[in-house]
């Protein structure tokens, strides 16, 4: 077991004050057989109220509102996570992760890529093979894509960020009839949120990080999973006001 300290901060500044601001966050770690938290805290400012709940995938959500005028919105999620090697027992009703989702529809080119690269001896192996091929195919390029770029688009661009790597790998895995899902959270050392995938093999979910071409053991603190990135955004908000916003994000994860 390893222990990590995490601190995730987001500050959004509005150039003119806004009102009726509603938010829904996924910024606190999941609890599962290989991830437990302690000293979990969430600081939100300004906010009238916050409710802690869970979405349909069981991911922790934190939502609420600030109705009166304000010109910034800050949240800080911090605590400790105790982590065992990445291997999560399957939950019920996970067949939805077998089929393509809106952001992971395969194109002909993706299907072809899935066909020509050989399968492994089990599902994790197959996914790792794909991840390895994808790692040499795709070029990591911040700013080349946006949050709703599809697997098809990123595949044609041959560029993307962690979310795109994950989407394409999901499209490949599902094309090969694997059960696979999108996961996001915090990664030791990188200073921002990260995305990877989980593959179901023999009743357990294993983590694969296509951006870094690796099989995950430690160092990844998961906050949510879903069919693709659209199912589990870290931060969604809506407000009234013609403001433009600037958001600063800082993530610190350290082994303790």
């Amino acid at each position: 077991m390893k222990k990590y300290f995490y601190n995730y901060q987001t500050i959004t500044r509005f150039d003119i004050p806004v009102i009726k601001h509603f938010f829904l966050l996924r910024c606190m770690p999941c609890v599962n057989a290989c991830q437990q938290g302690s000293h979990k805290e969430l600081f939100l400012h300004p906010s009238d109220s916050v409710i802690y709940g869970a979405d349909s995938w069981g991911n922790p959500i934190q939502y609420g509102h600030k109705l009166d005028s304000h010109d910034s919105f800050t949240f800080v999620s911090s605590g400790e996570a105790r982590i065992l090697p990445y291997c999560i027992p399957n939950e019920k009703n996970t067949d939805m992760f077998k089929v393509a989702s809106p952001l992971t529809e395969p194109s002909e080119a993706i299907k072809e890529f899935a066909r020509i690269h050989k399968k492994g001896k089990n599902d994790v192996d197959t996914a790792l093979n794909y991840a390895n091929e994808l790692y040499s195919y795709l070029c990591y390029m911040p700013g080349s894509t946006h949050t709703r770029t599809t697997a098809k688009e990123a595949f044609d661009l041959k560029q993307g960020v962690c979310q795109d790597y994950a989407h394409i790998l999901l499209a490949l895995c599902r094309e090969a009839r694997l059960t696979a899902r999108y996961a996001n959270g915090f990664l030791v050392g990188i200073g921002m949120t990260h995305a990877w995938i989980e593959v179901l093999d023999d009743g357990k979910w294993y983590g694969i990080d296509p951006t870094n071409n690796k099989f995950i053991e430690y160092g990844y603190i998961k906050i949510a999973h879903g069919r693709d990135a659209d199912d589990c955004p870290v931060n969604r908000g809506i407000f009234t006001g013609a403001a433009t916003q600037q958001t600063e994000i800082r993530v610190i994860v350290e082994e303790i």
Partner: peptide, 25 residues
């Protein structure tokens, strides 16, 4: 999802339907 488990409707007809909303699970 008994109707899927009992093989009456293939699961992909449900999960790849545009009208299926996992948010309602």
């Amino acid at each position: 999802k008994y109707i899927i488990k009992d093989g009456i409707i293939p699961s992909e007809f449900v999960y790849s339907s545009k009208g299926y909303m996992p948010e309602c699970e």
